[in-house]
């Protein structure tokens, strides 16, 4: 096989300081998540919670899981995974959010025995 493949060493050993910084960021993120949840931000509570969670997840994947140091192909697969997840969520949500547009209104919105939500 070509020698250029053998030459290419991509083992990356992370610095302890980097790992500890990510750890601290994750703990701080958890504290902020719990603290923010005690305030009534209306619709924004869940947005803020998910934004922090996405940031934490990205940190874990990027540094702890070493996506940053992996091959282009692995990075492409990670992005593809997120694309598949967004297809799953997008199609599910567009189904449920558009059901009330038809003549058959939400039964749970009018039938008290099903519990009134809105």
């Amino acid at each position: 096989m070509s020698s250029e493949v053998k030459e290419h060493h991509h083992t990356h050993i992370p610095e302890v300081g980097t790992l500890v910084k990510v750890f601290v960021a994750l703990i701080v993120g958890t504290a902020i998540t719990a603290e923010v949840a005690t305030f009534d931000l209306g619709e924004w509570n869940v947005v803020v919670a998910l934004a922090i969670a996405c940031t934490k997840a990205t940190l874990v994947a990027w540094i702890f899981m070493g996506v940053r140091y992996t091959s282009q192909l692995t990075k492409l697969f990670c992005v593809a995974g997120l694309v598949f997840l967004s297809i799953l969520l997008l199609i599910t949500f567009s189904d449920y959010s558009s059901r009330s547009w038809t003549h058959h209104a939400k039964p749970w919105a009018t039938n008290p025995s099903l519990g009134t939500s809105k």
Partner: peptide, 12 residues
């Protein structure tokens, strides 16, 4: 993701 979504709904 589970922690905020399950524990913190309407926590305020």
């Amino acid at each position: 993701f589970l922690f905020p979504l399950l524990y913190l709904i309407g926590h305020w």
